[in-house]
């Protein structure tokens, strides 16, 4: 690992100011991804600013019925929280579907959202990777691409976003609150992560030194009827080939409202708005679900080894929604 300085801040403004002065500095949350990437020489910060004691570790109910999750809350505490389990089981399920308890105990909510892709070429500094070193090329397109994106990729990058939590948060209309060099803002989760385009080095829209302080879950009563389904190569402790986060509001067998997001298929958590629009206002039948899922995936452009993800995603959407309908 390359040498680096280590500093603690006492509040978000102090942490942001420390990073603003150092273009190569990074925030340190739980460190489960960052420290690993530093060992691999993929991440090369010259200064770590520890966020322990800087970001909130509490989960609180908001006056409007929403829930605010401090960015410093551990993944374990988020998943075990009674309010989250009752109001938004998809969030708890998604968190518990990822990593191991040892990692979830260290990892923070903010850090989970900002973890980097697990594309093997991104993590291997001996290979070309536009995300790691812009302009060097993408080794994955002609290489092992079974795990990689089928939606929204570009000729420069086919990486996927690895977070399970982010998929659930995208589905339930969550937003992140940030503080940065230019002040504070609220960013819907659907707009936090981005597609790779020609500059895949940027995973998200945050500026250097912009700190996630909290995640807000809006009041969404039907999120109590939500579910996360993760499909992977082994039963536990693996990244998603495809995952689905879904919530549905069924009234007399008709879909009054629905939320669907996909993981493991794109550079960002993929909100399936096209499928949602097709499902609203009708019965939740297998046939309608299939049609909606196929419409969502019509623009899929698989690579040489991952065409299976398209029918897998379609079937996962159908099965997850039928499960939610109790069928």
């Amino acid at each position: 690992m390359r040498p680096f300085r280590y500093e603690r801040a006492t509040d978000p403004a102090g942490a942001v100011a420390l990073l603003a002065r150092s273009p190569q500095a990074a925030f340190l949350g739980g460190g489960t991804n960052l420290v690993d990437l530093m060992k691999l020489d993929v991440a090369r910060p010259d200064l770590l600013v520890d966020l322990r004691g800087v970001t909130s570790r509490t989960i609180e109910e908001l006056p409007d019925g929403g829930v605010r999750v401090g960015a410093g809350v551990s993944n374990s505490d988020l998943a075990a929280d009674p309010l989250i389990r009752r109001r938004c089981p998809v969030v708890a399920q998604a968190v518990l579907g990822g990593a191991s308890t040892q990692l979830r105990n260290l990892a923070t909510v903010g850090g989970n959202l900002l973890q980097r892709t697990r594309c093997g070429y991104f993590q291997d500094v001996s290979t070309a990777c536009n995300k790691r070193e812009p302009g060097t090329g993408c080794s994955a397109i002609e290489g092992h691409n079974r795990d990689l994106a089928v939606l929204g990729s570009s000729p420069d990058c086919i990486a996927t976003h690895p977070s399970d939590l982010a998929v659930a948060l995208v589905a339930v209309d969550a937003a992140v609150r940030t503080v940065g060099p230019d002040g504070s803002r609220v960013i819907p989760l659907t707009e936090l992560h981005r597609l790779p385009g020609s500059d895949p080095q940027h995973d998200n829209v945050l500026a250097h030194g912009e700190l996630i302080t909290a995640v807000d879950l809006p009041p969404l009563p039907f999120a109590a009827n939500s579910r996360y389904r993760k499909i992977r190569d082994r039963a536990s402790y693996a990244f998603a080939l495809v995952s689905v986060a879904a919530a549905v509001d069924l009234v007399d067998g008709q879909v009054r409202d629905v939320r669907i997001a996909l993981g493991g298929v794109a550079h960002k958590p993929w909100r399936a708005t096209r499928a949602e629009d097709l499902l609203r206002g009708g019965p939740l039948t297998e046939q309608r679900l299939r049609r909606a899922a196929e419409a969502e995936l019509v623009d899929a452009r698989p690579q040489s080894d991952n065409a299976f993800k398209v029918p897998l995603a379609r079937n996962a959407i159908v099965r997850t929604l039928l499960d939610l309908a109790g069928e």
Binding site: Y6, V35, Q102, N105
Partner: peptide, 18 residues
């Protein structure tokens, strides 16, 4: 794996200074 302040954690990914 060790118990770190009462919770299990991967000690290989935890910086001692932190």
């Amino acid at each position: 794996t060790v118990l770190l302040d009462g919770r299990r954690a991967n000690s290989c990914l935890a910086l001692a200074v932190a």
